[in-house]
């Protein structure tokens, strides 16, 4: 086994470029999944089943099918329908949509964990529905689910390399490009493997600390 430190040094600038794209995808994807997941969760609370059933069916379908194929679907089909979007935008939308079907379950659990007394108190104060949600239920529900949402951000980080397949140059894309140009596969691929562990391990420690803090 040969290890070439020069290749590592040459690859580092590309690693930073890739890391920036990865983080960009992660932040935007998280924002989409947090918002959209909340929308799904609230729609699942509507009284009519004509809203709940379609939402349930669609989110179940998205959750149980591979993100990779969903990426291909959006990347190749949207242009056929006349919607032009850059590869990065398509990737961010796909990853945000995919993970919104997970965050939706997190929000649902958080909302169900709010004690019934809180609902009853809101009724007793005759708060309007909107105020009940925004001032009483959601602030308590969201606080509880922050660690669980954090876990999905870490999971999303590990799915960002999939965007390489639709030509986005995130970390793995940069590594592959570098490998093909220099015929050195070992160093760039190992470096980004280590980079992923170096980011996700402290992040998971942070989430665990948050969990403990909320539990106490």
């Amino acid at each position: 086994m040969t290890w070439d430190w020069d290749a590592v040094r040459d690859f580092l600038p590309h690693l930073w470029d890739g890391l920036l794209v990865t983080l960009q995808v992660l932040v935007l994807g998280s924002l989409i999944s947090f918002t959209l997941g909340l929308v799904w969760a609230l729609l699942m609370r509507t009284p009519t089943r004509w809203v709940r059933w379609p939402v349930e069916a669609v989110t179940e379908f998205v959750r149980d099918t591979p993100l990779l194929v969903q990426l291909f679907f959006l990347f190749y089909v949207l242009p056929e329908w006349g919607i032009a979007a850059s590869a990065l935008t398509t990737g961010v939308v796909a990853i945000g949509l995919h993970y919104s079907t997970y965050t939706m379950q997190v929000y649902r659990a958080g909302i169900e964990a709010v004690p019934p007394g809180q609902w009853e108190a809101a009724t007793a104060l005759s708060l309007p529905v909107r105020r009940t949600w925004t001032a009483v239920i959601l602030p308590q529900a969201v606080r509880r689910v922050v660690p669980a949402l954090g876990n999905y951000v870490i999971a999303m980080l590990k799915d960002t390399p999939l965007l390489m397949t639709i030509t986005v140059l995130e970390m793995l894309g940069e590594a592959r490009l570098f490998s093909q140009e220099h015929f050195q596969f070992t160093e760039p691929l190992t470096v980004i493997g280590v980079a992923f562990v170096l980011i996700s391990f402290p992040a998971s420690l942070l989430v665990r600390a948050l969990e403990r803090r909320l539990a106490s």
């Binding site: 086994m1 980080l157 590990k158 799915d159 960002t160 390399p161 999939l162 390489m164 793995l172 590594a175 592959r176 490998s179 596969f185 070992t186 691929l189 190992t190 980004i192 493997g193 992923f196 562990v197 996700s200 391990f201 998971s204």
Partner: peptide, 24 residues
């Protein structure tokens, strides 16, 4: 657990395909 959960599955697949063969 931490190392294999920490890296992305796709990165691991690339690694097994491209790094293992020449290395070993």
């Amino acid at each position: 657990t931490e190392v294999f959960r920490g890296t992305s599955a796709l990165v691991m697949i690339f690694w097994v395909y491209f790094v293992l063969p020449p290395a070993f």
